[in-house]
């Protein structure tokens, strides 16, 4: 709607009609290739999950979680939900991460750990994926030579933004409201 207004205002209406159709055409033409890449990576991720990689990762994540969530981690159920949430996020399993995250959020609410709930939310708004499967799938379906070569760059960017988010929420949690 905004686009149509802009094209009217700027007097480029002639191109508008064909642009819409071309856009729809592009999206449909692209869908099968995207489906191929998404299915492949979802299948590999499912294999990893069923092989117990998620559980191994969850064990590895305990020490940092104890530091970030001292009150939440004291409760076994909440700690399990926290580590499941983080490990699912790292494997790119959004479907598994959200339910675990919600259990963790309810646990923290029950413990009245308000500032730790804020930390959990910020942790989940910053992506901490080990393999950027969705972005790589998009690149693969558009003919990239090496779709996963962005992985180190994604790590650097994720870690920097995660640190920024955690430092900020720590400061904000201390500030009087």
């Amino acid at each position: 709607m905004f686009s149509i207004l802009a094209s009217l205002l700027l007097g480029n209406t002639a191109a508008a009609g064909s642009a819409v159709l071309e856009g729809v055409h592009d999206a449909l033409r692209f869908a099968p290739e995207l489906a191929a890449a998404l299915c492949l990576w979802s299948a590999v991720t499912e294999l990893l999950e069923r092989s117990g990689v998620g559980a191994d990762l969850a064990r590895l994540l305990r020490p940092p979680l104890l530091r970030l969530f001292p009150r939440g981690a004291a409760d076994p159920g909440t700690l399990a939900a926290l580590s499941e949430n983080l490990s699912a996020n790292m494997l790119g399993l959004g479907n598994a991460a959200t339910p675990a995250g919600i259990r963790a959020a309810r646990g923290l609410a029950r413990l009245q750990a308000r500032s730790e709930l804020n930390t959990l939310v910020v942790l989940n708004t910053a992506s901490v994926q080990l393999l950027p499967t969705t972005a790589a799938s998009l690149r693969a379906s558009l003919g990239s030579a090496a779709p996963f070569d962005i992985t180190p760059a994604v790590w650097v960017s994720s870690i920097l933004s995660l640190l920024a988010g955690l430092v900020l929420i720590r400061l904000l949690n201390r500030a009087p409201s």
Partner: peptide
């Protein structure tokens, strides 16, 4: 691709988590 792969839908995540926890967002997250 890197921007997409290293970020999340922040507004959505915040809404889902605070709603699920049944706690009002204190505007810090």
């Amino acid at each position: 691709a890197v921007m997409l792969g290293s970020s999340e839908t922040s507004f959505y995540v915040i809404a889902v988590y605070f709603t699920a926890a049944g706690i009002r967002d204190d505007g810090r997250a």
